[in-house]
Simulated assay, not measured.
Amino acid sequence: MFSKIVVVYREAPTDKSDWWELHEPFEEILSDGSSVLVNAGYVTDFASVPRWLWSLFPPIGKYNRAALVHDYLYDLQYRQKELGEKAARKFADDQFLYLANKVNDENKFTNYVMYLMVRLFGKYAWRKAK
């Protein structure tokens, strides 16, 4: 079964979203069989969804695992030195879809729509993390 994500609410730096701090370390297996360990203290907003879309795509819920790992991979610029920027960002985005399908297999259409949004708009967050 899945490991548990333990977070505590943290005051947001702006009024744009809620922030959550990982209270315990969290490990996830990626699609290529490697694992990533997100350390306690890591801060995420989970899914960065505009407020007007929350009724369709809530920022917190079934996708927490996928969003947490995706945020962490972006913040690390995971595998960028090895793969280059485009391929590393695509790998991180692909992990979002892989993990979303892993936890919410019955709704692959919604998972794919969220993945497309990550692909379209993630470039700005990836470059911001540099």
Rank of each mutant, 00 (worst) to 15 (best):
S48R: 04
K4M: 15
L83Q: 12
K16T: 09
V6M: 02
K62V: 09
A12N: 14
T14A: 08
V49G: 09
G122P: 09
K86E: 13
G122D: 00
K81A: 13
L53E: 05
D75Y: 11
G33E: 08
L116A: 09
F121Q: 05
W19Q: 11
D71R: 09
G84F: 03
S31W: 07
H70K: 03
Y63E: 03
K4W: 01
E106I: 02
A67T: 02
V36N: 01
L73T: 08
T110I: 13
R65A: 05
G84Q: 04
Y72V: 03
Y78E: 01
F96C: 00
G84P: 06
M114V: 03
F2H: 07
F121I: 00
K108C: 01
A125K: 12
P13W: 00
F109Q: 01
L76A: 09
V43G: 01
N101Q: 01
Y42F: 15
F26V: 05
A40P: 06
R65K: 15
D93R: 05
F96H: 14
A47W: 10
V43L: 06
F26A: 05
Y112C: 00
V6E: 11
G33A: 14
Y115M: 12
W19G: 00
S31H: 14
Q80V: 08
Y63D: 13
Y9E: 14
V38E: 11
I5N: 08
K4V: 15
S48F: 00
